[in-house]
Write a protein that binds this DNA or RNA. Structure first.
Lengths: 195, 195
DNA sequence: ACCGCTATATTCGGTGCCGAGTATTCGGGA
DNA sequence: TCCCGAATACTCGGCACCGAATATAGCGGT
């Protein structure tokens, strides 16, 4: 059966190996250094499973098994030509096709009617504060990265995330005021149910 | 070990049972009718696993095993008091605490430098069109729901989603023009690498 | 009366993901 | 010199998740 594009960690592996051959642990280190783990979930168990899967599908090859010093052997992998093709195709797909993502907040807010308006308001305000904190943290980080001379393309995903967070904050603010003022559609029924 | 709040489908189950007792298949039907499956991933295999897990943790009880007609027996479940508490706590957490979600598009765009600018531009424009289509589809749906007399609270999550999609479209438009004009930071190095 | 289609209701084997556990080496302080 | 903790490198069992398969019941048409 063909390779399935499920775990984005496999994409990260292909991307790293497109630079130079590496062994799995080194991939993890590199991802950490570059803060890639903030964007792609990294986890040792999954890393080795994913590498093995890529190997089975011949998208990468075991180029060498070194034994430096007396450490446990480590297998160094390299990307293959089919692997490079897969990398580019997958990348294009991820960018070009908006997939249906199930966000946890959407699940929560869709059931907000189950709690009393007061509690809901408090929860939303708490989230608002949390989003605010994330925004300032991101702004600081961007400042630092720009100060280090890194080009915008190197942290373009953070730029995107900031835009999304700002939009979320705006929506949360709207919802909070609409709840406080009782102007959200269906408010009276909502209030009545919880007393 | 305690119950883990991983699969939001379990939340949906608790929410449904907070209305009235049901058997699993009925939960699935109800979720479909209410379009909840657009927000919470529904899948038969997972549904039965999740129900079993909730049962093990005594958040729901098997209230009866009917055998209507000559159909296979079906187990009807009901929510317990601890289950109700769990429902409300979980709900509050989902709304109040912004969790780190790993979005597929962020993974893709963070590696956009790996493809040539022309290809990247085409991919982004394709996504833009896709997002546009989703937005108009959502607008039509909202129109219909409002026309049916449903209060805004009943489709509040779609309102949120529209806001997010609009923000994404704006960002995509910005990125597309910045790429076309070569004004995105680090453009020259990007172009140089791919020739 | 019989055929076949859809709806009802659940089971089950496979797979991928997870994170705690293991084993070794290296560097630094007393 | 010896010990301890951090870093290196990977392994493994468990479990949640998935979706295709199964089995029966009702219902409309000929």
């Amino acid at each position: 059966m063909p390779f399935k594009r499920t775990n984005p960690l496999a994409l990260a592996v292909l991307a790293l190996l497109s630079e130079r051959p590496m062994h799995p642990y080194e991939m993890a280190q590199t991802m950490r250094e570059r803060h890639q783990e903030e964007v792609i979930k990294l986890n040792y168990g999954s890393l080795y499973t994913v590498v093995e899967s890529l190997h089975r599908h011949e998208l990468i090859t075991a180029s060498a098994t070194q034994k430096a010093g007396n450490r446990p052997e480590r297998t160094v992998y390299a990307i293959t030509d089919p692997g490079t093709t897969e990398l580019h195709d997958w990348l294009r797909e991820l960018i070009a096709v908006p997939a249906t993502e199930y966000r946890r907040f959407e699940a929560g807010i869709s059931l907000v009617g189950l709690m009393p308006p007061d509690d809901a308001l408090a929860a939303v305000e708490q989230r608002s504060a949390g989003v605010d904190a994330q925004l300032t943290a991101l702004a600081v980080l961007l400042e630092r990265l720009a100060g280090m001379g890194l080009p915008q393309l190197a942290w373009i995903e953070l730029d995107y995330r900031m835009a999304m967070l700002r939009a979320e904050r705006a929506w949360l603010t709207w919802f909070a005021t609409a709840t406080r003022d009782g102007t959200v559609g269906g408010y009276s029924a909502w209030e009545d149910k919880h007393r």
